[in-house]
Amino acid sequence: MFEIRQYPEFSWSNSRHRTFMECKKKYYYHYYLSHNGWLFQAAEENKLAYRLKNIKNLPIALGEVIHDIIHSQLKAYLAGETLASEQELIQQVKDRLNLAFIHSKKHVDDWMMKPKKFQMLHEIYYYNKLEQSDVENIKQKIDVCIKNLLSSKSYNTIITDENIHVIEAEELKTVYFDGVKVYVVLDFLYRERESDKWIIVDWKTGKQNKTDRDQLALYVLYLIDKYKITLDNIIIRNEYLQSGETKDYTLCEDDLIEARNLISDSTEAMRRFLAQPSINKPLAEDEYEETFSYRCNSCNFKQLCDGKREE
């Protein structure tokens, strides 16, 4: 049964941690002010924060679409259906991004009412245009990412190796550490029957980042907790679709200790910004400071920050 909560449930995820570290004001808007913003009777400020939370810039929209396309392609393979060709996949991505553009330009009122159902691009919302150079860059990335997907190690293993057993694909999962609910989403998880190796695959449409390996360590914690397997049997893999590079990692116990410490330390820091931790009631908005940086112009909540500075 649907329950209206005054405050959101506290949980932890890698993306929540990154937002908290990036800017406390953004963190407050995203995880607290936007809460209940989907309700008809919500205050206008909550509704605005909820809408802004659901804006996506073009690179993020591209990444989400490509992830969806990969999931659909592999789901079709597992169901014994005909796979889409390279050109068909490219066109599917373009069609999805074109739809996001159409929503952003022609369905603004619909998006205002239903920001989860309709899409809004950050570039259109704040600047009312897409730079031609950005459009050309995205077109090039689409071609490169789809080409590298079809030639990637993981994709070809999944569709050709009869020795593998698919476990999970693009599912939101939870695991508890010290009573804290932690969210993880594995792009793809399969097991090699003969070697009994479990392979976690993470598709990346952006450039390599030093935190990529840390994110995979969280997936390993989830795997060990749910399936009770040993660390020696787990391989974690990043497939970088922009460069075509595949990176496999194996972790040691120290890596897992570091991952657990990250969750613990991050959770403790977040809770210092709560007035009542038992119900996840936040401190007053003024207690969440802005971090001024080059990211401000591309922040979803730019409108809120700019408006409050003008008051």
Rank of each mutant, 00 (worst) to 15 (best):
G63M: 05
I235E: 15
G206V: 02
K114F: 15
V180L: 06
I164Y: 10
H17F: 06
L283S: 05
D265W: 13
K105E: 15
E22M: 13
H35P: 06
S298L: 10
M113I: 04
R309M: 12
Q140H: 11
Y29T: 00
N238I: 09
D68A: 04
E131T: 03
S195R: 10
I142Q: 11
K281M: 09
E268M: 08
H67V: 01
E162M: 06
L52H: 13
R18Q: 13
K302W: 13
Y32Q: 08
N46A: 08
Q276L: 09
F2I: 04
I257W: 08
I200Y: 12
Q140W: 08
Y219A: 06
Y219S: 06
A84W: 01
S195L: 09
L78P: 02
K24M: 10
L256Y: 02
D161H: 11
L33P: 04
M270C: 09
D110P: 00
E285Y: 15
K228D: 06
I279K: 13
L241I: 00
K204F: 08
Y222W: 14
E310I: 06
F301T: 00
V182Y: 06
C305N: 10
E136T: 03
C145T: 02
E245G: 03
D254R: 15
R272L: 10
I55N: 10
A284L: 12
D212Q: 09
N156K: 12
E170G: 07
C252N: 15
I236P: 05
Q140Y: 14
I90C: 00
Q140T: 04
P277Y: 01
M112Q: 09
D255S: 08
H71P: 01
E64I: 02
S85P: 05
K141Q: 15
T174S: 08
T267H: 08
L256G: 07
E171R: 14
E285S: 09
D286S: 10
